[in-house]
């Protein structure tokens, strides 16, 4: 399979910027993996944390966010790479705000579950 068409537009950016972009992609991938591992771990190791249906739904939500984060991290990488090739401003992304909200909400929900557990 060939490289996407945008790889032939513009000019090749300084390799350091491309590598930094790659590391950012990997950091988001690890965040996605942490969400997946967290979802499976909560499901297996803390079966008493909430009624079964609630627990399953929470774990599924975490796993689904992990899956979409893996896709979003690739798209984000590609957009940044294209912007650098064409000397444009780096695109704004709601990813950081979104993940801040997700992680805070998850922390709050699990804190409440742990505190109200009987």
């Amino acid at each position: 399979m060939r490289e996407p068409a945008w790889r032939r537009t513009g000019k090749t950016p300084d390799y350091r910027f491309s590598l930094a972009n790659e590391r950012t992609f990997l950091a988001w991938v690890r965040t996605a993996l942490a969400l997946l591992a967290g979802a499976v771990a909560i499901d297996q190791l803390a079966p008493e944390i909430a009624p079964t249906v609630v627990r399953i739904i929470l774990c599924l939500v975490l796993a689904l966010i992990g899956a979409s984060l893996a896709v979003v991290s690739y798209r984000r990488w590609a957009h940044q790479e294209q912007a650098m090739r064409n000397d444009q401003e780096l695109p704004h992304s709601w990813l950081m705000l979104g993940m801040t909200v997700v992680v805070s909400a998850a922390a709050l929900v699990f804190a409440i579950l742990i505190l109200t557990r009987t």
């Binding site: 399979m1 490289e3 996407p4 790889r7 032939r8 090749t12 491309s18 790659e22 992609f25 790479e81």
Partner: peptide, 11 residues
């Protein structure tokens, strides 16, 4: 063409 930059296929 991308030099040392990651191939899109790998990512």
């Amino acid at each position: 063409e991308g030099g040392i930059a990651a191939p899109a296929l790998t990512l």
